[in-house]
Computed example of a mutant assay.
Amino acid sequence: MKIYTYQGRKNICGERIREMRVKNRLSQSDLAAKVQTEGITLERDSISRIENGSRFIADYELMVFAKVLNVDIQRLMN
């Protein structure tokens, strides 16, 4: 499967995920742990790569991020 980039990034919501994580006073490790409690296996380094745009985010992962960060998916996409 070929994963395309948009303006040099593999996702458009990593920056917003970082903003929401910081707003909720969570470390990358804390966020990874919360995501794992929802059944998605992500490590701290995966969170880091998502936030800097070097990792693709699947739609089901985006749903879990929205849930654990307590925001609407649209908020992560803008």
Rank of each mutant, 00 (worst) to 15 (best):
A32P: 11
E43C: 08
S48V: 08
V35E: 00
Y6W: 11
S54R: 10
Q7G: 10
T41S: 12
R18V: 01
G39S: 06
Y4T: 10
V35I: 15
Y6G: 13
L26Y: 03
R18A: 12
E19D: 12
Y4I: 12
S27E: 05
A66K: 04
N24R: 10
A58C: 08
L31M: 01
A32I: 11
L26K: 05
V64L: 04
Q7P: 00
M1V: 14
I57P: 02
I40G: 08
Y6S: 13
V64G: 09
R75F: 04
G14H: 04
I47T: 01
T5S: 10
G8I: 02
F56P: 06
I40Y: 03
D30S: 12
K2M: 09
K10Q: 05
S27F: 06
R25M: 14
N70V: 08
Y4E: 15
N78T: 05
L69F: 07
V71I: 13
L76K: 00
Q36C: 15
G14P: 00
K10S: 06
M77I: 12
Q28A: 00
K23I: 02
V64H: 04
I57N: 06
R21D: 02
I50D: 02
K67V: 04
D59Y: 11
A66L: 03
R21Q: 01
I17P: 08
T41N: 13
S29W: 07
K23H: 09
M20S: 11
V68N: 04
M77Y: 12
D30V: 03
M63Y: 11
K2E: 14
V22S: 04
A66V: 03
S29M: 08
I17H: 07
V64Q: 07
